[in-house]
Write a protein that binds this DNA or RNA. Structure first.
Length: 424
RNA sequence: GGAGAGAUGGCCGAGUGGUCGAAGGCGCUCCCCUGCUAAGGGAGUAUAGGCUCAAAAGGCUUAUCGAGGGUUCGAAUCCCUCUCUCUCCGCCA
């Protein structure tokens, strides 16, 4: 959520920057709401002040044993008007809050303008896609060929967009999560956390807009609980309504969790295999930082995610999301895209964002600064990495002509030294 | 599932209708004193808003004692609903 003070003082500038990301700021609606708020709030507070003043007078009269009925009559005379105004003000403020919560974040000045993913500039390309001397298969054919991926059973259990993994691939999947957690806890200083996979609506609205994106989430019927679409939801909310001592920053958490997404609106997209499932595992990096350092931290966090790809010897590239392709809450985002031979394309495997104070303001997450004053923290997160897609990338990049799949060196210790997955 | 207790400021904790935004303590900040250290004395120290002001300072003001509603001229305090925490019993992976 944006700072309402900023909107009051620099409305035109903010509207212009939001237009870059394709959001038309309803300037008139905001001006109207603000004018109403100001008028109603001023009068309400005047009446409240009068009531408070008279009430203390009543106390003084009664203490002296004098008759206060005249004073009480005076307050009663304005009670209806006051109560009506209080209600009206509450309504206006609720509308303003809803309005503010529906406005996306303002892109950082370094974010390139653009309309879609086609406009995302490439920052760097690491590793070279391997050339195959045989016809490459995609992960579905590889996995089913090995008898280790079973989409037929998955759809029997739960319908489309689910996976069943068996034996070697199930173990590889587990090894990947383990490996990623080890890298981030041992080498990058993150604290491993285990969290609820269901969070309240308030938490969901703390990291994004629940009103706008609730259709993307699975909800528990009859309860105010949502299956998390990423561990960002619970982990970032660790600091919800907290005042973190300044010296504790940065807080760095890594969390392995399943992620649940309804994928409403993506009908027909990536229907095959495990690229876009309703349920997938992810190792998520979250940082809660001092505002001064948040952009340095974004570079750092992105580099942390890249380490995993390097260790796994997977070719990838990093792009900066242009203004038109950014998520609702982000001020700046780097996507890491891994090379998928089966698709002959780079596909997103991690998304690393700085949200500045946008989420902190929604969550009321603050810290005590050098001057002893409270200030909103900056929040960041990124995948480090999406486990399911990493598995896909391994299968496709390390496939062999005979249908087997080589296990990269880094993972072998996690698989009891196994060097390749073969049909049994 | 049953019974009971509780939720107050950065923390602990007092406060059962009236100058209470809240005693006291701890912590923190500043000052004084003390030849180090330790101890002592004094002052200050919640948050989010609104209006005013060119702006800062300042001034005026509102709300907030788990959340929401109610009673009242006036609620931390009384009533209702909800949430969470703790204790005991039952059940259970």
């Amino acid at each position: 959520m944006l700072d309402v003070q900023l909107l009051r003082s620099e409305l035109q500038a903010v509207a212009r920057r939001l237009a870059d990301r394709g959001y038309i700021f309803p300037v008139d609606e905001f001006a109207k709401l603000e004018a109403a708020r100001k008028a109603v709030q001023t009068e309400t507070q005047e009446l409240q002040a009068e009531r408070n003043q008279v009430s203390t007078q009543v106390a003084q009269f009664k203490a002296k044993g004098e008759d206060a009925s005249q004073l009480i009559a005076k307050v009663n005379a304005q009670a209806d008007r006051r109560k009506a105004l209080e209600q009206e003000l509450e309504g206006i403020q609720a509308k303003l809050d809803e309005f503010l919560r529906g406005i996306p974040n303002v892109p950082h000045p370094s974010v390139p303008a653009g309309k879609s993913s086609a406009d995302n500039p490439e920052m760097r390309k690491v590793g070279t896609p391997r050339t195959f001397k045989f016809t490459v298969k995609d992960h579905v054919d590889i996995g089913e060929g090995l008898g280790l991926l079973d989409f037929a059973t998955a759809s029997k259990l739960s319908g489309a967009r689910f996976s069943v993994m068996k034996a070697g691939i199930a173990q590889l999947h587990r090894a990947l999560a383990q490996f990623m957690l080890d890298v981030h806890t041992r080498e990058h200083g993150y604290t491993e956390v285990y969290v609820p996979y269901l969070v309240t609506g308030a938490c969901a609205d703390g990291v994004s807009s629940l009103a706008k994106f609730k259709d993307d989430l699975f909800k528990v019927e009859g309860r105010d609980l949502y299956l998390i679409p990423t561990a960002e939801y619970p982990v970032t909310n660790f600091v919800r309504e907290e005042i973190v001592p300044g010296e504790k920053l940065p807080l760095k958490f890594v969390c392995h969790s399943p992620c649940f997404r309804s994928e409403a609106g993506s009908y027909g997209k990536d229907t095959r295999g495990m690229i876009r499932n309703h349920q997938f595992d992810k190792v998520e990096l979250v940082q809660i930082v001092h505002p001064q350092s948040s952009y340095d931290r974004l570079e750092e966090l992105t580099a942390h995610a890249e380490v995993v790809l390097k260790r796994l010897e997977l070719p990838y590239r990093v792009v900066t999301l242009c203004t038109g392709d950014m998520g609702f809450a982000a001020a700046k985002t780097y996507d890491i895209e891994v090379w998928l031979p089966g698709q002959q394309a780079y596909r997103e495997i991690s998304s690393c964002s700085n949200f500045e104070a946008f989420q902190a303001r929604r969550m009321q997450a603050r810290f005590r600064n050098e001057k002893g004053k409270t200030e909103f923290v900056h929040t960041l997160n990124g995948s480090g990495l999406a486990v399911g897609r990493t598995l896909v990338a391994l299968l496709e990049n390390f496939q062999n002509a005979d249908g087997s799949v080589t296990v990269p060196e880094a993972l072998r210790p996690y698989l009891g030294g196994v060097a390749a997955l073969k049909a049994s």
